[in-house]
Amino acid sequence: MTAKRIDVLDLLRGVAIMGTLGTNIWIFTSPAGPAGVLDALGGTGAVETVLRFLSNGKFLALLTLLFGIGLELQYRSAARRGASWPGRYLWRAGLLFAEGLLHYLLVFEFDVLMGYAVTSVVVAYLIGRSDRVVTAWTAGAGVVFASMVGLVTLALISDDTPASPSRPGTLFTDGSYADQVAARIELAGFYRLEAVFIIPLGITLFLLGARLMRAGALEDSARGAALRGRLMAAGLGVGVPLNLLTSFAGDDWVLVDRYLLPPLVALGLLALITGVAHRMSRLSGGVPGFARRGLTAAGRTALSCYVAQNLIASVLCYGWGLGLAAKLADLRPWWTVAAWAGICLLLATLSALWLRRFRRGPLELVWHWAYTAPRRRLAAADSSGR
């Protein structure tokens, strides 16, 4: 890959990370916190519904596509070295699972890294197979997931029992940090349900991301532009209107609104952002502007930014921190938007400053040290054996 294409990939990661916070911030700024996730994401009026629509599910799907592209790059790297596959990638997936487990226990109930780790192991054994096998798995996993969403949606629509208003708990407004950790352990089955539920979708998007990479979706070329045009037509021309409709359709359509249509929109976003980035790069002579530098830096330190944004939001919103979720509840949705923008600006700035001195983000450095530990031990053993 060229350096230019890697920059585009980092930019996409930065946008995806910031966009994921755009959904999670509604959970953090709800007085009920993650325990009231359905109320937090349900919207209370047209303005909040539109604001929630802008990010809900779309950037999670974009991030999932990018994980698939990353897996494709790892596969290519192993092939160039003549290394066995999946080989060391399984150790990589294990580290990702451990990172996700710690993130879940210590920071955020709806961590996605554990689910990505499990999905990556499945996809690692598929990514090098024939196009026919990959297409069958992509379509099959997609059909399974769509069927699951459809069945649950039909059950919700056919249920005439009115939903009773939920009573916000006090765990996230008055509870201690230790209380929240204990609750994550006790309610792991509830909080980890989403990660298990979306594994078929993850398989589909991982494989689709890898195939889009091979098809040239990130290339600044004629074939790349043609493919991006088709993706934008489907994702933005068809997906956006349908997703906006389901955003106003009521709670019965929550799964379609969050999981089924956003991946289609994410394909359009991937194409749009990539195309705009290539065009701006040509116009500027390859010199990135302030916004692109910040987003690219966030993409290069994506793991650190993902964990940091949830940690910062916890400190701002929960009772053991500043407790702003309860204090500013009457200012939703506007204070929610301000919190998101402030955290994004802070992380983009800090990431850019950090990368002036280091090649990797803080957590990326620790992660790389752990990933290369087996090789260091083998090298030390060989050296002592001589």
Rank of each mutant, 00 (worst) to 15 (best):
M1G: 12
R5G: 10
G19V: 04
G19K: 01
T20G: 04
T20Q: 06
F28H: 10
F28I: 03
T29Q: 02
S30D: 14
A32W: 06
P34A: 15
A35K: 00
V37T: 12
L41N: 01
T49D: 10
R52T: 05
N56G: 06
L60A: 12
R76G: 05
R76H: 13
S77R: 15
A78I: 08
G82N: 04
Y89Q: 09
R92C: 06
G94Q: 10
F97T: 08
A98Y: 06
E99Y: 15
E99G: 13
E99D: 12
L105E: 04
F110R: 03
A117R: 11
V121L: 04
Y125G: 07
R132A: 14
R132I: 07
V133L: 09
V133C: 03
V134A: 06
A136S: 14
G140L: 09
V143H: 11
M148A: 13
P162H: 09
P162M: 13
P162R: 11
S166Q: 14
R167T: 15
G169H: 04
T170G: 02
L171K: 09
T173K: 09
T173S: 13
D174M: 09
S176R: 14
Y177I: 12
Y177N: 08
A178N: 02
D179I: 08
A182R: 14
R184T: 04
R192Q: 15
F197C: 06
L201S: 06
I203H: 02
L208Q: 04
G209I: 01
A210L: 07
D220V: 12
S221A: 15
S221F: 14
R223Q: 15
G237W: 12
V240G: 00
W253Q: 10
V254N: 00
V254F: 11
L255K: 08
P262G: 10
P263G: 07
P263A: 07
L272D: 01
I273T: 12
T274N: 01
H278L: 05
G289W: 11
G289V: 11
F290Y: 09
A291T: 12
R293F: 03
A302D: 01
A313G: 03
S314W: 01
C317Y: 05
Y318M: 10
G319T: 06
W320H: 12
L322I: 00
G323M: 07
A325V: 08
A326W: 01
A326C: 03
K327Q: 15
L328P: 03
L331S: 12
V337S: 05
A338P: 08
A339G: 00
G342M: 13
T349Y: 11
L353R: 14
W354L: 13
R357Y: 12
G361W: 02
P362V: 02
P362S: 06
P362A: 04
L363M: 13
W369A: 15
A370F: 13
T372A: 13
L378I: 08
A381V: 13
R386D: 11
